[in-house]
Structures are given as C-alpha cells and as structure tokens.
Simulated scan of single mutants.
Amino acid sequence: MDDISNLINFNELIPGLPSDLGLECLTRLPHSAHRLALRVCTHWRSLLQSDAFFRHRKKTGRTHKVTCLVQAREQQQPHQKPTGCVQPCYGITVFDPEAMAWDRVDPVPDYPFGLPLFCQVASCDGSLVLMGGWDPATYEPLTAVFVYDFRTSEWRRGRDMPEKRSFFAIGSGMGRVYVAGGHDENKNALATAWAYDPRGDEWALLGRMGRERDECEGVVVGGEFWVVSGYGTERQGMFDGSVEVLDLGSGQWRVVEGVWEAGRCPRSCVGIGKDGKVVNWRGLDPGLRVGVCGVRVGSSFVLTGSEYEGAPHGFYLMEMEQGQNRNLRKITVPDGFSGFVQSGCCVEI
C-alpha cells in the first residue's frame, strides 16, 4: 500500500528535525503513549494509524506483543438468565508481560455489559478479531464478527461468519483468521472450515477436513493451522487423539495421528512446546488443573488456571530458552484482574 516516505516527506513531523529523525522519534513511542499522540495534530494521527507505520515499526523491531484474554469481570453485575442461573460478564483484558502491565479494552458497542459467551479471539496485523459465541441474554448462537484496531482504539463490525458454529478451532496466519470444526445450532459436529480476511472484510470457503471435530482447538505452527482433537456427532465427548493440519500455502489438509491424548478435552490448553511438539498445559503444575488457558507471547507463555473447582485463579509466566521449557513463575495480579479466563491470544501492537 502506501510507503512510509509518502507520509513523512511533505510535513515536518517534529519542528526543527529532519523528517527521518522525526519518524524515528515517533517509532520509539511506547504504544501506551499513542492515544495521547493521536491528539497532537492531524499529520501525526494519519501516520500513527497507517498500515505503513505499523509495517515500519515491525520492520525496525519497535512493535511488542501483548496477551488479550477473554476474562470474567469482577465486581460487576452478572447476567441473570431466564432460568434464574447467573452467568458472569466477560470483557477483554490486555496483559503486557514485558512491562507487567494490566489494562482493559473498551467494551464492544453491541455488547456493553458483557461479551458473547464462548466467543473466540485471534489476532491479525495489529488487530484483535472476535467472533461467534452465544448471546449472553438468550444463549442464541451468533455469527457476529468484531475487529478491534489497537492503532485507533476502536471496534468495528466485520462481516458475519457464513455459518453458525460453536466451540470451533481458531487461529491466524498470513493475514487471515482461520476457523474450523465446532458444531451447528442443532449440535451436529462440523468438518467445514473458512478463512476471514479482516482487511478486505471477506470470507473464503476452505476444503473440508477429513473428520467432524466438535470442541476442537486451533493453533498455528509456522505456515500451518492445526485443528487439535475434537469428536464427531455420534461420538459425543469422545475426544480424538489426532490433529488435522491445513497448509496455509497450498490449502491442503492432512491428518496426523497420535498427537493428542485421546479422551482429553483440548479447549484452551493446547500449546506448542520444545521441539515444536503439542503440549497440554493442564496438569503442568498443581495450580493448573481446572479452567486452564495458555497463550504464547513471544518467547514466553502466559498460563492461568486453578487447583480445583472454586479455588482462586492463578496466573503464571513460563519462558522458553533455547527450546527448553523453564520453571513456572507465579505472578501477582492487581485487583479486578484475577477472574476466570475463557480463552486468549497474542496481539502484536
């Protein structure tokens, strides 16, 4: 698209400095200062919100990675269901493991009091993509897609998912978000898969997987989208040990057997550890037995979970060094950020 030089050559970014030095100064601004910097002038706003500036920051190593978590919000009124059941409200928490800083993303305008239940998130080119889930008031499955741009700090509505599906696998790579499996509104397990382009706001149908895979988990490994485990319609709850692998370049699927422990649910607890092998974060530590979720952020993993049902929710960091897993380090969480984590992803901003 536009080159970075086209955005800096016609105006001084910083009075008295050559344009290239002004650009380097703005490139070094921490992302936490961008919201204020956008107010300085229209030229700064145009630059900081451009694709070219994001690419320049990435090329010069000035971006950094944060964890976006779909987390139960504390000290909020929970949803009251028609049945009388109480359902916690969820929002997007942002954790920066480098600065050890916690923050929240503004609510989705369509859901100011809590995200759709069991919605899925993935990242793409500095944006957070949220899709699917159930309406928090009616439990109706949704096809809605929302995209949060960290450059503008705003949500926008994307094109709806082509099919209703729940508990599907999701992952991102090569500028696309990939979804596969799950089940439809009639609880039929699915083998279909789609790719979403957030920039063009378009969906493309992919080839079918070889098997139906409900309650599967997605992870991108290099140039491949792995759909881990799941089960067919007639095998409710009988999780498969195989992985369906999509080559993002060729669009071809293949099945790899014996990758996952058969009978174990993979939801939110699949990781890629040393030697590129699939690992199960559940049970890695006594505090990671129930409600486990893991997100890779650069060379680190952010892990959450509890020791037993109803126990306090703990947060851990684990770093990778020369391909080897290091010991877990429990981290202190500020008030209001210790709620249950449903799922999460890494976003480069």
Rank of each mutant, 00 (worst) to 15 (best):
V243I: 04
G237V: 12
L246S: 06
K274C: 14
G241D: 15
V227H: 05
R267E: 06
G207D: 10
E215Q: 14
R213S: 15
D240T: 10
F239E: 02
C269D: 00
R264E: 14
M238E: 15
V243S: 01
G222M: 07
W226G: 00
E212S: 10
E215M: 12
V279A: 10
V255W: 05
C216Y: 03
M209G: 06
R211I: 04
W253V: 02
T233P: 00
C269L: 09
V228P: 00
G263C: 10
G222Q: 06
D240N: 09
C269S: 15
K277I: 09
G207N: 13
V245I: 15
F239S: 00
S242W: 02
G249M: 01
V243T: 15
C216H: 03
F225T: 00
D247E: 11
V256L: 11
G207A: 14
G223D: 07
C216G: 06
V228G: 00
G271I: 10
V245D: 02
R211M: 08
G276V: 10
E234A: 11
S250H: 05
V256R: 14
E244L: 01
V278W: 00
G237C: 12
W281L: 13
G263A: 11
G222C: 10
V220L: 07
V228N: 02
R213V: 05
K277H: 12
D275A: 14
K274I: 07
S242Q: 09
W281T: 01
I272P: 03
G218I: 05
G273T: 09
G251E: 09
R211E: 11
F239I: 08
Q236R: 14
L248G: 02
G263E: 09
T233D: 02
K277C: 13
G276W: 09
V219K: 04
Q236P: 01
V259Y: 03
V270F: 06
E234S: 11
W253Y: 03
L246N: 06
E244C: 08
E234N: 12
K274M: 14
K274E: 15
Q252R: 15
G207H: 12
E257G: 08
Q252M: 11
